[in-house]
Amino acid sequence: MTPEIFIQILASGLLMGLIYALIAVGLSLIFGLMDVVNFAHGEFMMLAMYATFGAVLLIAIDPLFLAPLVVAALFVVGATAYLGVVQYAMRAKANLGMVQIFATFGLAVVIRGVAQLLFTPDYRNLPPNLLGGKTVSLGGIYLPLPQLAGGLVSVAAFTGLWLLITKTDFGKALEATREDAGAVALVGIDKNRVFTLGWGLGAALVGLAGAMLAINYYIYPDVGAPFALIAYVVVALGGFGSVFGALAAGILVGLVEAVSAVILPSSLKAVGIYALYLAVVFVRPRGLFGSL
């Protein structure tokens, strides 16, 4: 392998990793807040991609500028999922964990079915746009603009999230609720409201990832599944509930995947990611930055 190829692979892995991180952080946030693993996370991303596709066709503005709209739409989807399904799952008196898993799993299947019903199973792609298919070459290292934009947006989103959690009242309520959901009621925080907003925020984040990914990716009802599996591994690798962990783990997974595809047979590259996860949790059973 020439140094040039090696740098190219690292650069590509890094950009992909930032996207993985952005997909995963919403999952991690929701988990940190209320110990729920959302099995419909990949389907949220799929919805965001369809939303981008639909918005482009309807409004004919570049998808890049439609991302805020998609994020807002997904916020509503997430909040609705909480109010319509998850809050009932939270009330279970027995088997809490499994009820949540299967309530969200059922939700995922329903969303896929609805997507097939509404959008048909055809593969969709955005029409030519500002970034799609464009790439810049820096001394022989190619950086595709959609992924570059995705990476930058991801970094910006993480910065924003950090500010939100540390500097705002909502962030403090979020933090307080995740530490002791029972006690916050005493200080006048409406737990249900925080959870609703948390789900909205989690879905909005994966919505942002979906909007960025849609620029240069095919869209169909099952598009979320391969990303969701990676997102679960990223969240666990980083440590459930840790926002920074999701970022670090996402990047790490992107890099390891890119390198594995070269040193292993390509069809086994995911084994590299899986081995990384096992190696980390055998040494650190709570993931890289898990505090729980």
């Binding site: 399904v85 009932y88 799952a89 279970a92 008196k93 027995a94 088997n95 809490l96 499994m98 009820v99 299967f102 309530a103 799993f105 059922g106 939700l107 995922a108 299947v109 329903v110 969303i111 896929r112 079915g113 609805v114 997507a115 097939q116 019903l117 199973p121 009802p221």
Partner: peptide, 23 residues
């Protein structure tokens, strides 16, 4: 081929999980 089976199947899982958490 319109995904209706998925909708019914998923909804039933959801309903059972929510209505009878203890099984």
């Amino acid at each position: 081929g319109r995904g209706i089976d998925l909708i019914v199947y998923g909804a039933l899982i959801m309903v059972v999980a929510l209505a009878r958490p203890q099984g």
